[in-house]
Amino acid sequence: MARVEFRNIKKSFGDVDVVKQFNFIVEDGEFVVFLGPSGCGKSTTLRMLAGLETITAGEIFIDDKLMNKVDAKDRDLAMVFQSYALYPHMTVYENIAFALKLKGFSKPAIDAEVQKAASMLELTPLLDRKPKELSGGQRQRVAMGRAMVRTPKVFLFDEPLSNLDAKLRGLMREEIKQLHKELKTTTIYVTHDQIEAMTLADRIVILKDGYVAQVGTPTEVFQRPTSKFVAQFIGSQAMNMLDATLIKQEDEYFIALGDTHIPLPERFKARASRNLALHLGIRPTDVHLRAEQIDHDRIMPIPATIKDKELLGASILLKTEVAGQELIAETHTAELESDHATLYLDLDAIHLFDVLSEKSLAS
């Protein structure tokens, strides 16, 4: 296991700055996910740690040892790629054993390590097969086994599940999580899939345009996003964003949403400012059809027009219009007598973002 530190890391390709400023510490034994859209710099940062990309500026340390000029093969890291990168002419056994053979391990030692990894990953019946005879999930497990037997200081995963179907991705997520629980090896995992990030990570580093947008546990980034970008990026249904204005009446602040005035929750008052243009954010699951669905008294009724319904199976998406803007509610019932309804907002679950900075007003 190892502690990894990134200090003022930057990466440019010609005139294009891909990673503009990256500072972060991965603690010993921690599972950290780099999450963000394509082009945000997450894979490039991982490749700089692995020694596969040169660093334009800054320093990378593993256990307080500077890595900038250390060859990739000497960094004691193991990387699992999206493309599996298996040797097609070798069997599963030979693919897993290859790195150990290069290190000069004895045949009994190699066999013991390969059998151990194969058992953990349920590959024992497949050891004599070639990669072309395996499914995508089996190939990915072989790639993981090859990384495991090296007993590296750090595991690096670069979008390893992107080529798999949805069901197989779910199974592989469970295997990776169990693997980390058993081995307790420091792990950095790159993905654009927020479900992978939320289910796997101890902490998530959300990147945007080469910068760190937010760092936190899955619960923290979901419940307390610090910017509009993070709020809308995290969540299986994107957070609703409504244009609103902060107004002041008789020494009290209200959120003006059309003709509806919503009392400003206490957590926003420290940064309140009269006539401030806002984005009001609320997740579809926090918009309800009945007041009793909210288990406290901080509720705001709001008139809405129902525009459309979308059946998701276990739930229904209601596409509504509120103050001339679209508001989506995710509900488990569609008991509507007309196209007009009263929706109930959970005031404990609303988010406010400054229109200009897009930063949260929450203290």
Rank of each mutant, 00 (worst) to 15 (best):
L86A: 12
I110R: 07
K103I: 06
Y84T: 08
I96S: 07
I62H: 09
K101H: 10
F22S: 08
D64Q: 14
L126Y: 14
S119C: 13
K132M: 13
P125A: 14
Q115S: 10
E30P: 07
V70T: 07
G36K: 01
E94V: 09
R47T: 09
A143I: 08
Y84P: 05
M148R: 06
G136V: 09
C40H: 03
V70Q: 12
A147V: 01
R47H: 12
D74N: 13
L66Q: 06
K73V: 04
E30F: 09
D76R: 04
Y93F: 15
L102D: 05
Y87F: 15
G41H: 03
N95M: 14
A99N: 08
K20Y: 01
L134M: 07
A99M: 03
M148I: 15
T44E: 02
Q138M: 12
E122S: 15
A112F: 07
M120A: 13
D17E: 11
P37K: 05
V149L: 07
D111M: 12
I55K: 04
C40N: 03
L66H: 07
Q138V: 13
V149T: 06
K42A: 08
C40L: 01
G41S: 08
S38Y: 07
T45H: 04
S83F: 11
E27D: 15
S38V: 02
L66V: 14
V26N: 09
L102T: 05
I60P: 02
L46I: 03
G58D: 01
Q21L: 11
G29V: 06
G39D: 02
R141V: 15
F98T: 08
K101Y: 09
G36Q: 00
A117T: 02
D28T: 06
G58W: 03
F34M: 09
S43K: 05
E59D: 15
T56Q: 10
G14H: 04
M148W: 00
Q82M: 10
